[in-house]
Amino acid sequence: MNTETLLLRLRAELDDGGLRGSFLVRDLRTGYEIGIDPELEFPSASLVKIPLAAATLERIRRGELDGSAPIDVEPGRATTPGPTGLTRFRHPATVAIDDLLYLAMAISDETAADTLFALTSPAEVTRLTREWGIFGITARHSVAELSDTPAERFDPTDVHLAHALAINAGTDGQGHPVPQLDITRASSGSARAFVGLLEALWKPSKVDGEVAARVRELMGLNLLRQRLSPDFVSDATKWSSKTGTLLNMRHEVGVVEHADGGIFAIAALTESRVPAAIQPEAEVLMARVARALRDHLRAG
C-alpha cells in the first residue's frame, strides 16, 4: 500500500471512531518519518512531565538541586477517580527529589510533579527546552489543574456532560472556555514537537548525556501501558513512554527499540468526539493507527 492510500485509510478509521489526532512516527536512524497532522497542537496534559523531568535533572546536574534532598509533601486528598500516588496519600510524607521524579513519570503522580514544579517553574522548564533547541512544547501551569476540570464537578453519573462540554465548546482556533483545553493557556505541544524531544533524548543532542539517559530510564519504568504499549511491547522490543489524559484527550509518546537495531520515536495525541469518560475502543484505535504508521515506515 502506498503512503497516500495508507494515510487516507487511517484518517477514515480515526474519523469513524470519533477521533481526531496528531500522529508522527520517525525512524531515529534515518530521519524518515510519516504522520497525520503532526503540526496540530494539543493541550499536553501529563506529557509535560517529560520536559519537567529533563529540566529537573539538568538542574541537578548543574548543582542547583540535590537529587537526594528530602522534600516535605502534603497529602493530595484526592477524592475523584484517576489521580495516583502521593495525590491519594492521607498523611504528610517526606520524599527525595529523585524519588519524586520516579513517581511523576512511572505512575504519573500529580502531587509529585507539582512538587517538582515548585522547584522548577513551568516557565523555567519551557526556557530549558528552548535552550536545548526543542521548540513547540510549552509548560504553562501546574499539573494539579488537570484534575480541576468540569468533570470533577459533576456527579459520576453525569460525567458525560463534562465531556460534551469539552467536545462542543471549542473554537476553530483551538480556544476553549475550559482553560486546560485552550492551547493558549494550557501546557501544549504537537506530535512533531514531542518527537523532537524524544529524538533529543535518544540521540546525541544539546541535552546532557546523563540527563537524557535518566529520562529514558524513567520512561522505560512507565506503568501506564493501556494505550500504545500493547502494539509495541514484545520479547524483541523495548518500549519507553509517557501517557497524558485530560477529559476527551488521550495521548502517548514513546520510543520503541527493536532487537535488530531499529528505533522509532512515536507520538499520538488525540481528542474524542464521544462524550464518555471510559473509551477503551479509542485507545485500541490510536494504537492501531500508530502501529500502522510504524509498520509502513519500517517496511519502507
Rank of each mutant, 00 (worst) to 15 (best):
A118M: 09
S205G: 11
I71D: 01
L57A: 10
V159W: 12
D72N: 10
R9P: 02
D15W: 13
T84M: 10
E39G: 09
E4R: 13
L293F: 02
L7W: 07
P230L: 05
H176N: 08
D155S: 14
L86M: 05
A287T: 04
T5S: 15
G63R: 00
L221C: 09
G261Q: 04
I266H: 01
N222H: 06
D208R: 08
D260S: 11
H141C: 12
R294Q: 14
R29H: 09
T56N: 08
L201H: 01
L28W: 03
P122M: 10
R214E: 15
R20L: 05
P51V: 09
E252C: 08
R185F: 10
R26A: 10
G17C: 11
T87K: 12
H163Y: 15
N168Y: 14
W239D: 03
A169V: 04
S229P: 11
D295L: 03
G133K: 13
F194M: 12
R88E: 07
G17N: 14
E33N: 12
L197Y: 10
L52N: 00
R61W: 04
L119T: 06
I278N: 12
T111Q: 12
G170M: 04
A96Y: 00
N248K: 06
A290Q: 04
E13F: 05
L218Y: 06
T245C: 11
T120W: 00
V25N: 07
R59M: 14
D148I: 10
E39Y: 00
T245F: 15
P204H: 08
D37W: 07
L246Q: 02
V215P: 03
E252R: 08
T270D: 05
P150F: 00
A162L: 03
V178P: 07
A193V: 04
E283I: 01
L218P: 03
R26E: 15
K203G: 01
D109N: 02
W239H: 07
V178F: 06
E271S: 15
A12N: 13
L228I: 10
A268F: 03
L198E: 02
A113I: 01
T94Y: 01
I137D: 06
I60R: 01
L165E: 10
V284L: 14
R26K: 14
A118K: 09
A277F: 12
G76R: 04
L246E: 03
V274L: 13
A55S: 14
L40E: 13
L24M: 11
F89I: 01
T171H: 03
H91M: 12
P70K: 09
M219D: 02
S22G: 14
R250L: 10
R216F: 04
N168K: 13
A53S: 12
R130T: 04
